[in-house]
Write a protein that binds this DNA or RNA. Structure first.
Lengths: 151, 151
DNA sequence: CCTGAAAACGATTAGAA
DNA sequence: TTCTAATCGTTTTCAGG
């Protein structure tokens, strides 16, 4: 991304991934073909890595979310944790972290018993201690990475 | 969302928000107009809440992410925290949590000094103690909420 | 709730600057 | 990189089952 027009394009498409080239073009003051060329470059260069629909977790039966810090008990497994947990669909994110624990997971499930089952599944997949922090309420998430500048 | 076709649609559009109605129609075996009507219903009923481009944090100059747990020192401020922090663009997510702290933030900044500045800005905005956990590596995040069933 | 067809609109490409 | 203009594909709307 190397000019303010690219920045605005990224901000716009980040806010509405289904915006038409004509709409984007109107925002940045270029023709649709110029916008298309820029979008393609942003995709090819890895600035834009994809487009996703935002889905209401409640609507798809997963209203309960939590952070799970995990620490492998067997040091030999430590590097494999992300891969060993990838098959668990409830695990939405996996980061390695600095601090007491080795990894931080963000998970979404339907009910408290589902959370218990998930924690057991994690322990089945890899030998770890876990520390779970339940989310009571999400005020915002997925906020745009590139804030829209005031026009 | 109340049938398997809706579920597949949500899964598909969640994987590629810019898929055309024709592509989606091919996946679910309906006409484009039927798919369009279903998408509209899913949007209107709040199952699909929006469409966003995924942007590489590194590419937009924010390679450093962290979790910040915060606990208000002044109980009177406790409910206002999400709103008081909303103006900080680095704060990507804000959840209230069960546990020692009151809130969990997920933040993205450019550099360690930026993180220090952010923490000071948070303290300026609201009277809190903070506990920061730096992310060393993100293995995955934003995984699809509705896993694609095996076809 | 679906299909299918017609019309409107957007995306894509080529050629020129 | 950009624009314009022609072509092609997609979305939208509507009649009918």
């Amino acid at each position: 991304m190397h000019d303010p027009v690219d920045a605005r394009l990224v901000a716009e498409v980040s806010r509405d991934a289904r915006a038409t080239l004509a709409q984007l073009a109107a925002h940045v003051g270029l023709s649709t073909s110029a916008v298309q060329a820029r979008l393609r470059r942003l995709e090819a260069s890895g600035v834009i890595t994809g487009y996703m629909a935002l889905v209401s977790p409640e609507a798809v039966g997963r209203p309960l979310s939590a952070f799970i810090e995990i620490t492998p008990l067997d040091p030999a497994q430590i590097d494999d944790v992300p891969q060993l947990l990838e098959h668990l669909a409830a695990v939405e994110a996996c980061h390695s972290i600095a601090g007491d624990a080795s990894y931080m997971l963000f998970v979404r499930v339907g009910t408290p018993p589902d959370l218990e089952t998930l924690i057991r599944d994690i322990r089945k997949a890899v030998n770890v201690t876990t520390r779970t922090t339940v989310v009571l309420q999400t005020f915002y998430e997925n906020r745009p990475l590139v804030p829209r500048e005031q026009p």
